[in-house]
Design a protein around this nucleic acid. Sequence first.
RNA 1: GACCCCAUCGUCUAGUCAGGUCUAGGACGUCACCCUUUCAAGGUGAAAACACGGGUUCGAAUCCCGUUGGGGUCACCA
Length: 473
Amino acid sequence: MTVVTRFAPSPTGYLHIGGARTALFNWLYARHHQRHGSGGRFLLRIEDTDRARSTEEAVAAIVDGLAWMGLDWDGEPISQFARAGRHAEAAATLLAEGKAYRCYCSPEELAAMREQARREGRKRLYDGRWRDRSPDETPPGVDPVIRFKAPQTGETVVDDLVQGTVQVANDQLDDMILLRADGTPTYMLAVVVDDHDMGVTRVIRGDDHLTNTFRQLQLYHALGWTPPRFAHIPLIHGPDGARLSKRHGALGVEAYRDAGFLPEAMRNYLLRLGWSHGDDEIISTDQAIDWFDLGGVGRAPARFDMARLTSLNGHYLRQTDDGTLAELVLAELVRRRSGPLPPEAEARVVHGLPGLKERAKTLLELAEKTEFYTNDRPLELTDKAAGLLTPDARDRLGRLRRRLDGTEAWTRDELETAARSFAEQENTKLAKIAQPLRAALTGTDVSPPIFEVMEVLGRSESLGRLDDVLGGR
RNA sequence: GACCCCAUCGUCUAGUCAGGUCUAGGACGUCACCCUUUCAAGGUGAAAACACGGGUUCGAAUCCCGUUGGGGUCACCA
């Protein structure tokens, strides 16, 4: 049987990190079965029944976020709101079969019940006062809600693929609302009807839905439908152990994209957060599709660790081929200067990128590191760089400059050979030459190997920058 | 508060379901050393954990109970 999973976010914000991981797990599960089983489909449903909180921008943000993450869904995204009629139909069926009833309670009555339940230390809220009342008792002018006539005895069991067998006594659960007074469906009804109609076979979602599952299971039974299998994955927490929230600085995946993270790093990081495959750490998406299973999902919540994401990103950055990386970095540079780079500067960036990429952990950092290649003469020197240019060092640089003038091929190897023999002749260590040279050519005390830098800069720019520092000598 | 879930280095985790091979392995981070023209990358090494208390057992990180701690859910939100 074909495995069908879905990702069902509510468009009230952005695709946050937790949602992205849920989507990833669902996607991986479907793609795994597509490759190794008898088929798999990954569907997208937008839970937009709360009209007041749902926005077009939020839907776009989720779609963009999924696209950036590289998670493609099958078929068209489904709007839950658009299916309200079908939900009402299901409620009507339950009503007709006596499995649901109209409730005319006022907000005040409900508030009182809530208050009393809390006082008595009960989880169960609604006391079911309209459960068995006859229709002629209905108060005039009040629009009723439709409530589910939930079983009051026995227990409901969830055989969860991650959490194991979890059960709750039915007397803990009250009669939930299916249809609001305005006739719109609530989440509980909508998910069940939609998951059923969409043929979903596996519901992989956050832990926070575990206790909802009991009621949803009861609904499946009342409707006479076969429920899907459930897998509730633990939530992601912030570094302090509290549930991940805005104050942890994590907004949506686009924030990570803008911070210079690569989607493959994000996928790898999120995959390993709560899921493991032995000691494997670096896992390609292709391998992940092969290996992913629900048995590897842990049951304890995991904390979000920026340092680890960053480290992984550095790995994937180094792994990215130079052409692709050049495109990404150039795009970032255009963004920051809000204009194109001079051709000469662009050529230097492209040429210098291989030496730069293993020194950066994010795209942003990488873009920053290209600065000394693109800056115009004369370069501004950092304090440390200026400190390296002592009178002695300048004298040596002057002599080196004359030596360099005669260099035939301006390549890193040629330049290094020349510098080494010059150092020998001066009876000094290479560092005494390389560091001042770095200061003069880059304006800083840190850079890729200096002879590589000279090659990238080219003869005239290198000599020009040297002359800027040497002044009138 | 009630109900439910969870508990191995600072963090992510392997090991737990089928107790012995665990003086608990890997990774990130930290520290040291090596490499080296700087910084990275890379290499080597170090410090670092079975929450606590009871059982069961010849033997428990692994099974059971309790305590403590953390988390989730209790809406005409999703």
